[in-house]
Computed example of a mutant assay.
Amino acid sequence: MTFHKEGYTSLALCILFIFILNAGIQFYKPEATALKWIFYILSAVLFIIIVQFFRNPHFDITQDEKVVLCPADGKVVVIEEATETEFLKDKRIQVSVFMSPVNVHVNRNPISGVVKYFKYHPGKYLVAWHPKSSTENERTTVVTENSTGTPVLFRQIAGALARRIVWYVKEGDKVEQGDQFGFIKFGSRVDLFLPLGSKINVEIGEVVKGGRTVIAELPA
Rank of each mutant, 00 (worst) to 15 (best):
residue 89 K to L: 13
residue 127 V to K: 12
residue 138 E to V: 10
residue 119 K to N: 12
residue 19 F to V: 15
residue 68 V to R: 00
residue 160 A to D: 02
residue 201 N to F: 00
residue 35 L to S: 12
residue 165 I to T: 07
residue 74 G to F: 05
residue 23 A to R: 08
residue 134 S to G: 08
residue 201 N to E: 14
residue 45 V to I: 15
residue 107 N to E: 13
residue 3 F to S: 09
residue 2 T to V: 09
residue 59 F to T: 07
residue 44 A to V: 12
residue 66 K to P: 04
residue 168 Y to D: 08
residue 135 T to R: 09
residue 41 I to L: 15
residue 9 T to M: 12
residue 86 E to W: 02
residue 192 L to Q: 03
residue 176 E to N: 12
residue 161 L to P: 01
residue 164 R to L: 11
residue 73 D to P: 04
residue 140 T to Y: 03
residue 131 P to F: 09
residue 147 S to C: 06
residue 140 T to I: 15
residue 26 Q to N: 13
residue 21 L to M: 14
residue 171 E to W: 00
residue 2 T to I: 11
residue 55 R to N: 06
residue 208 V to Q: 00
residue 156 Q to N: 07
residue 156 Q to M: 10
residue 185 K to C: 02
residue 101 P to G: 08
residue 138 E to I: 12
residue 6 E to N: 11
residue 66 K to Q: 13
residue 52 Q to A: 13
residue 2 T to D: 13
residue 33 T to V: 13
residue 106 V to M: 12
residue 23 A to Y: 02
residue 159 G to Q: 04
residue 123 G to P: 02
residue 19 F to S: 14
residue 208 V to Y: 00
residue 95 V to I: 14
residue 26 Q to L: 15
residue 72 A to N: 04
residue 192 L to I: 07
residue 30 P to N: 08
residue 145 E to F: 02
residue 87 F to Y: 15
residue 200 I to A: 03
residue 219 P to K: 12
residue 142 V to E: 07
residue 3 F to L: 15
residue 195 P to Q: 10
residue 171 E to S: 11
residue 128 A to N: 05
residue 213 T to Y: 00
residue 62 T to D: 09
residue 10 S to Y: 03
residue 93 I to W: 01
residue 20 I to V: 15
residue 43 S to Q: 04
residue 188 S to A: 14
residue 53 F to R: 05
residue 61 I to Y: 01
residue 124 K to L: 14
residue 77 V to S: 13
residue 190 V to L: 15
residue 195 P to E: 09
residue 101 P to V: 14
residue 149 G to F: 08
residue 152 V to W: 04
residue 125 Y to H: 15
residue 170 K to V: 07
